Structure formats: C-alpha cells, structure tokens
Amino acid sequence: MLPAQSTTAESHSQPPLAQLRHWCAWFLCISFFYMVPMELSTLEWQKTEEGLWRIQSAETPSLWIAFQYLLWMIVTFISSLLFILTGSVQNFAYEKFAFQKQVEGLTVVYYFAWVQFLTMVTLFPYFFISGFGGLEWLDSFFSFLPHFIMVGTALVLFRGSWEALGFDRPRASRWLMMIGVVAGSYLLVFFFLDSLVTEPVARWFNLELASWREDDISAGISQAVESGWVFVLFQLLIIGVVGPIAEEVVFRGLLMKLMWRKIGVGLSILLSSVIFALFHADVAFFAPLLAMGLVMGILYAWFRSLWAPILFHIVNNSVSVLFEVFGF
C-alpha cells in the first residue's frame, strides 16, 4: 500500500497549474478518440436490391451530428489553448523529463494531446486554402497529414528513448528471422484472409463488400497516376510507409505496450486490434482489419520489436498501392 499512498500524495502535491494541464491533456486525448464514434455516426446504412447492407459516408450530416461536431471543436479548441498556455508557463517541464522513461499512462495521454493539438492547428489553414479550389491533391495530402503528425510527435517527445516505443536494434540474424516470418505471415494473409474472414463475415451480416474508405484511397491513387510519377511516389510514401509507421507507433508501440503491462499480452493484442479496426471506421471491412491487427500484435509480442509489425504493415499497404497503380 505504501507505493500507492506515495503516488497519491505526490499527485495531490502538484501545483494547480500542473493539475490543470493534466486535465487539458486528458480532454485532448479523449477528443482524439472521440473522433471514432463521431465518424461512425456519419455513416449511412442502405439496403440494396440484393438485400445487402451498403455502408457509406453521408454527404450531408444531420443537424445533431453537426451540433456534436461544433461542440467537439469548441471543447478541443479551449483545451488546446489552455494546454499550450499552461505548458508555456511551466516551460513544458513534463515533456522534458517524463518521456525519457518507459511508456506510462500519462505519457500516452500527453502524446495524444499533442497529436490532437497539432491536428487542430493544421485544420484551420486547410479549410482556408481549400476554399480557393483547384487543389484536389490537397485533400489527399490532408487525409494523411495526421499520420505525419503522429510520427513526428513520437520522434520528438521520445527523442533519445525510442527503444521505449519498440524501436530496438535487432542483430542481423534477428532481422533475417523477422523478415522471413513477416513474409510468411503476409503470404498467409494475402491468400487466405478474404476466403476465411472477409467474405464469410460479410455473408453472415449481409454486408456489401464496398468500402467508402477504400474508394477514397483508390480515387486518390488514380488521380496521382494521371498527374505523374512524382505524385504516385508520394502516394506510395504516405500510404505505404508513413501510414504504417504512424499506426504501429500508436496501436502497438503505445497502446498495446501500455495494456500489455496492465492486463497481459493476450488481452493487449486483442484490445489494441479492436481499436485499430475501429479507427478505420470501415464497418464492412472491420473483420479483416481486426484480423490484420491480431497478426501485427502477435508479431510485436513475438519479436518484442516494433519493426516486425511495421514491416508487415508496409508490405501490405505498398503492395495494395502498386496493385492499384498497375490495375491488378
């Protein structure tokens, strides 16, 4: 009981300004995760002539969703302002010292707070610039901008202690084993995921295997192909490399690692995979996304290295982009 009493006493002894900043960080962290149910609430379920459910993003949100979004924006803006002001007064003391240790609950909260704040900062210039028109490529870039923010925030906050996230330095023999296992895992997923998971689950729930998210990505790649190879390389970079690194830092390096220490490896793999699948807000492809999350979670637990799920994720996304580019 002594450590718990000591921790409680320490938290109560913090100055009010530090406690206020912690609360702001929590609000921003909740705001980050609240985007998932908010996005899911905008999806429309339509019955097709074949009796299947077609799920797509609504073109015009309802009044309730618009009010909810406005309230979320206001709360996020106020929390962001207080988070930065209190941090400036304290010279960002928490960020200077707390992130040099292992992944803790509050460091994860602060990470998501910074990601949400930086996303909000870029949101307003985007709305202003996109109003000029003729910048369709900007929509594609902005849709992946949070991934750049996730990676950049992790690299800055955990500078000097990236191994805490799982960025270790495996030996050459370990790398070879990792590459072999990742390649084998990807081949199994590539050949059997649809037949064993995607299609049976869709039939069970009468879901049409159509994804508004996949359609948006395909449209962005098609536009890149028409624009030139530079834009194709950019799509390959953000979808095939930056996106996987960002998502693995979040779902395996932070969330799964934190849960692993609290509830054990099995439940941490499952819960982090569920969160991973939910974050894509793609109901029709929730099952295969969950299965992919389980594979990447197992790879992370097996090798205890973030490079294993990152390699798998990069191969999966890059192959998908190349297939789309070459029309396979």
Rank of each mutant, 00 (worst) to 15 (best):
A4Q: 12
A9R: 15
P15T: 04
L17F: 08
A18G: 10
W23C: 14
A25S: 14
W26R: 15
I30E: 00
V36D: 11
P37D: 05
E39K: 15
T42D: 12
T42Q: 15
R54S: 14
S57R: 15
I65T: 10
F67K: 15
S79Q: 04
L82D: 03
T86L: 10
E95I: 02
E95P: 05
E95C: 11
K96V: 02
F99C: 00
L106G: 04
V108W: 03
V109A: 07
Y111E: 02
V115T: 05
T122C: 14
I129E: 03
F132P: 00
L135T: 10
F141T: 02
P146R: 13
P146C: 08
H147A: 12
I149K: 10
L157R: 09
G166V: 00
W175C: 03
L176I: 09
M177L: 11
A183P: 04
F190E: 11
L196D: 00
D216N: 15
S218N: 15
A219R: 15
I221M: 04
G228R: 12
V230Y: 13
I245R: 06
F251A: 05
L255I: 09
K257P: 01
I263Y: 07
I263W: 05
I275F: 12
V283H: 12
A284W: 12
A284C: 13
P288N: 12
L294R: 05
I298F: 13
Y300G: 03
W302N: 06
F303Q: 05
A308D: 09
L311D: 09
F312D: 02
I314T: 12
I314S: 10
V315H: 11
N317F: 08
S318V: 01
L322N: 06
G327K: 13
